[in-house]
Each structure stands twice: as C-alpha cells, then as structure tokens.
C-alpha cells in the first residue's frame, strides 16, 4: 500500500448526502481486475449527461477541480455496496483524502487499507469547508496525518480522529497481512483452544 503522511492539494466539493458506491463506480465496471486503471470509471454515469457527453457542471469535470486530490462530501459518503473498486477509482484518479461528516463503514475500512484517508469532521465544519471551496474553485486544503489536522482554505485548523492502528499502517504503507502474521503464535494458540468448533 502507498504510504500517506501529509497532503496540500486542491479539494473538490461534492456537497450531497448519501453518495453511494454505486454512483462512485457503477456495477458494470466491477469485473475489472485491480491492474486496470480505474480512473475513467469514477462517477462514470454521474459525470455524464443522458446523451453520454461529459456534464460540464459536474464538479470533477470543471477545470478548476481537475487536479483535485481531496474530495469533500456530504454525510454518509460512499455508503452501500462493499465494492473496494470505489476506493480504487478515487485512488487512480489521484485522490488520497476524503472528508465528510460520516462514511459508509466498509468504505472507511477499505480506504484505510488502500492509501485513501477518510477524515470525519463535524457536519458544520464540513459545511463550512464546502462553502469555502465552492466559493473559490481550486482552493487548497492541507491534511496532516501525523498531527491529525485539516487546514481549511481560510486557515482554520480542525483536528480529526483516526484509529491508531490504521494510522500506523497508513503512515508506514504497511499491509495488514504481514502484521497479522507476526501474531502467528496467538492465532495458532486460539485455534488449538477453539478446536474444530463450528467447522462443518
């Protein structure tokens, strides 16, 4: 996994609640393996007009936000399906941070395991940040994982919570399997104790 420490980047606003992973990547692209670049699947249908042309009004299509690497969204961002390709599509398109008042639980886990940092901030703070980046397209946000802070365009600094274990893995770019294997003794002991219970 790619490590993440700090970022200073353009932030794109997606000020809607309940943006589900079906919108982030429609189901028909789910059969693509990880090696495939997922950039073009990101919001594939949402960013197009019914005739298939790019919708110039969709935030990701706007020139000022083309190089955005941070997404700021409404509550319950990336709810719904467990599809990890929702993270891949964001990641491949350059995103490394998602900021929202709340996230779908599975997406949050998937993000942390794939180098995409989900940052939860209070709803009023997110609303305020959204207003700033909408008013000034291309405005930048700073994210500091070691310090656990987000600095909004107006210079206000907001602390966020992050799971210490996931933070460690993300800072180091560690994948968990290796880490878990270092607990082999404990797992084997558990298996001896647990025996064949619930093995069918």
């Amino acid at each position: 996994m790619e490590a993440f420490r700090t970022m200073d980047a353009v932030a794109v606003p997606l000020p809607r609640p309940n943006i589900d992973t079906d919108q982030i990547i429609p189901a028909r692209f789910l059969s693509r393996p990880r090696e495939v670049d997922h950039t073009e699947f990101l919001f594939h249908d949402a960013r197009r007009l019914p005739d298939g042309e790019q919708n110039p009004d969709f935030a990701l299509n706007r020139e000022a936000w083309r190089n955005a690497r941070i997404v700021v969204a409404g509550k319950n961002f990336a709810c719904g399906s467990s599809r990890e390709s929702a993270v891949w599509a964001l990641f491949d398109a350059g995103f490394r941070v998602a900021i929202a008042p709340s996230f779908g639980d599975i997406f949050r886990n998937n993000g942390m395991k794939n180098g995409l940092l989900p940052v939860m901030l209070p709803a009023d703070v997110v609303e305020n940040i959204l207003a700033q980046i909408e008013a000034d397209p291309g405005a930048r946000i700073q994210v500091d994982l070691p310090a656990q802070t987000v600095t909004a365009p107006d210079g206000s600094v907001h602390a966020f919570e992050v799971d210490p274990f996931a933070k460690h893995c993300l800072l180091e770019g560690l994948d968990e399997i290796g880490l878990t294997q270092s607990y082999e003794e404990e797992i084997a002991a558990f298996e001896r104790r647990f025996g064949r219970e619930n093995v069918r």
Binding site: E84, V87, N109, D163, I177, T180
Partner: peptide, 19 residues
C-alpha cells in the same frame, strides 16, 4: 460484509482486525 483486501486477509489468516 468486508472489502476485498479484507477478504484476502481472511483467506490468508482466517482472522480479521476490527475495532
């Protein structure tokens, strides 16, 4: 439900990290 990185983790270790 879990994501595919977690599926790989469960396949390899039969365990899962959770809070």
């Amino acid at each position: 439900g879990i994501g595919s990185t977690e599926v790989a983790h469960v396949l390899a270790t039969q365990t899962l990290w959770q809070r």
